[in-house]
Design a protein around this nucleic acid. Structure first.
Length: 522
RNA sequence: GUCCCCAUCGACUAGCGGUUAGGUCACGGGCCUUUCACGCCCGUAGCAGGGGUUCGAAUCCCCUUGGGGACACCA
């Protein structure tokens, strides 16, 4: 990539150009990320341009989704009309006069022409060509209409489109990733560049804006490779320069189909709601199609900027693997400080109705001079209060077990319940008989009951129970500890019984053992 | 159908003419451990096929096959 070495800081201008016709999906997020990294790497400028020329399909809510997604990921752009000193996106829908100027010029120069063919007519012709194995392209029926015919049709208000007179030639361009790519423009036919003088279409607006915005490098998905020769021809007709191109490989779903083509496109914001960290998603996305060459998997946005290089971008498409995303997310969750993690989890506990929002809750007052104040959340089922500090201790037990925040509720719900719902079979360790289970539970309550409230710590609890386990004469501690853990949590998997018992408190621990005994029939 | 892009473990990838083909996720086993997870150790698994070029090809070239993308009055 010798041309990249010639780049001077500040020269680069790149853009993200989503069309707001659907939510911001992973594919666009990855393209945005690479544009961002490229711009940051070379101290260039990144622009957000909303390609909303299709007024039928474009929606404000999708634009909002895209901008929120970008914000969440921390991919900031450095230019654009905005308010309060903040940059906003350019919108093609707000730049109509610019396109009209160019369109008129093309029309005057007869480089585009009026086409009055009906959609039905075109459809039929396309199907015919397809059926005889020809590339489906326009018949050029209207290419040579006389001035009079055109005026006649326009006067009769016959609907029209504007077609570009495609020159017949070979178009070559250089892709920064793939090298020379050549197309024969004969395959294209005279494409439609505008629905009418006031409604230009993507290929035209894109070429004009990239020029007007002085874009130096277009970094976009591979699906745009076939558009590139058309855009080059268009630029030629307009007499404007073309930027350099870099086409990123596609991201596929597990079924190997292009992500944005799948039935239901998942918004990046849904990952946020599920409890993924943006740092994890960024890290994951970067690794999808890019690799620094070293045996390294963990990258912050900053380290990505430092290490990013175009040479290391993959050429082949990548399958999106949710398991690796989960692993990365779990990794980043384990790196979090406990108070931050707890803050992150609280909305999920509220959403699943385990606790109620704290009315006088003020995030900044939770910690006062390093001390935890006693802000209490009301637990929905028991009506008791649970402090931020207590929540922190619970979540501490699950930090290593959590892959995403949305999982927290079903992991720790038993702390907030009056009665646990589980089958008596859960209490059975290996081949234990019902009598044995009951006996073990009896011993547990007797032993724990003797423990003073002041000694009710996981350390003390562990000591007396381990001693008890030794007295039981069984090799296997599970004989004692499994029924306990099951009785306290009601789950097949959970944190350890000593920790749970400590946080539950003596009273609740004994109550749960008692309830477990009731389940056992002899 | 036509055009274009691509091709290393199941997935993401390292490799850029000479390697016991490396790493991560997932999977299997072990340690730790009452369970689950974390952590640590070990393991299974790959150069799509065929021709060249070369003393020597995962690596360079060609063909085949396979996968994908594009062929709109969408972007």
């Amino acid at each position: 990539m010798e041309e990249l070495k010639l780049i001077r800081p500040g020269e680069i201008r790149v853009r993200m150009a989503p069309s707001p016709t659907g939510p911001m999906h992973l594919g666009f997020a990855r393209t945005a990320l690479f544009n961002y990294l490229f711009a940051e790497k070379y101290q260039g400028t990144l622009i957000l341009r909303i390609d909303d020329t299709d007024i039928q399909r474009s929606q404000k809510k999708w634009e909002k989704d895209i901008i929120e997604g970008l914000n969440w990921l921390g991919l900031e752009f450095q230019e654009g009309p905005g308010v309060d000193g903040k940059f906003g996106p350019y919108r093609q829908s707000e730049r109509k006069e610019i396109y009209q100027k160019y369109l008129q010029k093309l029309l005057d120069e007869k480089k585009i022409y009026y086409c009055f063919c009906s959609p039905e007519e075109l459809e039929a012709h396309r199907n015919y060509l397809l059926s005889i194995g020809q590339p489906p392209r326009y018949s050029e029926k209207c290419a040579e209409l006389s001035e009079r015919e055109i005026e006649e049709n326009l006067k009769n208000k016959k609907s029209y489109v504007l077609r570009f007179r495609m020159s017949s030639k070979k178009v070559r361009f250089k892709d920064l990733l793939r090298g020379e790519i050549e197309y024969d423009s004969q395959n294209f036919g005279d494409i439609v560049v505008a629905k009418n003088l006031a409604a230009p279409l993507y290929n035209l607006t894109s070429v004009i804006d990239d020029f007007e915005m002085k874009i130096t490098h277009i970094i976009r998905g591979e699906e745009h490779i076939p558009n590139t020769p058309i855009q080059i021809l268009l630029a030629e007709a307009l007499g404007i320069k073309t930027p350099q191109y870099l086409h990123l490989p596609l991201i596929f779903g597990l079924d190997r189909a292009k992500l944005s083509k799948r039935d239901r496109v998942k918004s990046i914001l849904e990952y946020k709601e599920e409890g993924y960290l943006s740092v994890a998603l960024i890290n994951f996305l970067a690794l999808l199609g890019w690799n620094p060459g070293a045996n390294k998997e963990i990258f912050s946005l900053l380290s990505l900027i430092q290490e990013f290089s175009v040479e290391k971008i993959q050429k082949s498409g990548a399958v999106f693997n949710p398991q690796k995303l989960d692993w990365l997310n779990g990794f980043y969750i384990r790196q979090k400080s406990l108070d931050k993690l707890t803050e992150d989890c609280i909305p999920y506990l509220i959403k699943t109705n385990l606790i109620k929002p704290c009315l006088e809750r003020d995030k900044h007052s939770l910690f006062y001079e390093g001390k935890v104040i006693t802000t209490k959340f009301e637990t929905t089922e028991t009506g008791e209060g649970v402090s931020f500090y207590e929540l922190m201790k619970i979540i501490d037990l699950y930090q290593a077990r959590l892959k995403k925040f949305s999982e927290i509720s079903e992991l720790i719900d038993f702390f907030f319940k009056k009665k646990l719902d589980y089958s008596s079979e859960l209490l059975r360790w290996k081949e234990m008989s019902n009598e044995e289970i009951k006996e073990v539970l009896d011993k547990l309550s007797k032993t724990l009951n003797k423990l003073e409230e002041t000694d009710w710590t996981k350390k003390e609890i562990g000591e007396v129970l381990l001693k008890l386990a030794g007295e039981l004469g069984k090799e296997d501690r599970g004989y004692l500890l499994w029924p306990l853990r099951a009785a306290l949590s009601g789950k097949t998997a959970s944190a350890g019984p000593f920790e749970i018992a400590e946080l539950l408190g003596k009273e609740k621990t004994l109550e749960r053992i008692r309830m477990a005994k009731e389940k056992i029939k002899i």
